[in-house]
């Protein structure tokens, strides 16, 4: 790698950091753990820079590194503690943002209940906006596999959120679960619209 190439690589790598952090956070939920994971992935990516093919997606490449890191560590140690609500709640409190809708907590804990392969596929495509092709590269599987995981994850998540909606409306109100769910979603949409009109939505 020439000096120039290395400089370009570094610039791209730095630009990928926020995404690495977001991906890590969605995978392991605990912000500190997530940042550790992202830093380890960054270090690995830097060491392996010679094997990166210029012109390909550095985001997909670093995500693949992070993902491998995550699963090997998970297998080794930090496994076994599935995300519990306390942890999600701490995350929420740490952000200390009054505009942060509570439903994000529900979303996170529902996500945590999905099988690993479905969750990561949905996060990559549905949250991170990756193409199916890029996501397939990250997960080192076929594009069709990603597609079906995403679609299963979407349906499962909908079911989990419906359940959560019915639990939280239990007792206080007599709102049927689905109404509560739709209501919550509308509020979330309104908040998102008011919060920051992003360039998206086309």
């Amino acid at each position: 790698m020439s000096e120039d190439e290395e400089q370009t690589f570094k610039t791209e790598l730095v630009a990928a950091i926020p995404h690495l952090r977001a991906f890590a956070r969605s995978l392991c939920n605990d912000p500190t753990m997530a940042d550790d994971l992202a830093q380890e992935a960054l270090a690995k990516a830097w060491k392996a820079r010679e094997s990166f093919e210029p012109g390909t997606s550095i985001k997909a490449w670093t995500f693949m590194i992070l993902r491998n890191q995550f699963y090997s560590e998970k297998r080794r140690s930090w496994r076994s503690t599935p995300l519990d609500v306390d942890m999600a709640e701490n995350t929420l409190l740490a952000n200390d943002d009054p505009t942060m809708p509570m439903e994000l907590l529900e979303l996170r804990s529902a996500l945590a209940k999905l099988p690993d392969d479905q969750r990561e596929a949905l996060i990559l495509v549905g949250a991170g906006g990756m193409s199916y092709e890029e996501a397939a590269q990250v997960c080192e599987c076929a594009v069709g596999t990603i597609k079906s995981r995403v679609s299963r994850a979407r349906r499962a998540l909908e079911g989990l959120l419906l359940e959560a909606g019915s639990r939280s409306s239990n007792g206080d109100h007599d709102i049927p679960a689905q109404d509560a769910f739709d209501d919550i979603l509308e509020q979330a949409a309104a908040l998102a619209d008011a919060g920051g009109k992003r360039s998206g939505d086309g």
Binding site: V14, P18, R21, L104, A127, G128, R154
Partner: peptide
């Protein structure tokens, strides 16, 4: 409509972290 709403929330969750300032450790590492 539900799926669209879920999609929005997923992106929101992700974007929130993306828009956080990157902790110093990351830059000092590089």
């Amino acid at each position: 409509r539900r799926q669209e709403a879920i999609g929005r929330r997923l992106r929101q969750m992700y974007e929130e972290v993306v828009s956080e300032p990157v902790p110093d450790d990351f830059m000092s590492f590089l």
